[in-house]
Amino acid sequence: MNLKIALFGIAREIVGQSSLEVSAPEGQSVQALLAGLREQYPALGRLSSLAVAVNNEYAEDGVTLSERDEIALIPPVSGG
């Protein structure tokens, strides 16, 4: 399956674009997605934190992803 991942802030700058298409096996977990992205973009691994959001909620490592999900990479937030 193909996952479309929205990118923001420093994650967008590291990858160099505002979204990314990743091909992944069915049932790909958040943890596996993050591991793959950190391998491809080592600078992501140097951030203070990196979370995945699925359908506007923070997703735990074990959550499985589907093509219908709205997925985003969430670097350390700094609002306020």
Partner: peptide, 12 residues
């Protein structure tokens, strides 16, 4: 305000 700074997806 404290929780906003921890969870809301805004980047400065």
């Amino acid at each position: 305000i404290d929780t906003l700074k921890q969870v809301v997806t805004i980047w400065k």
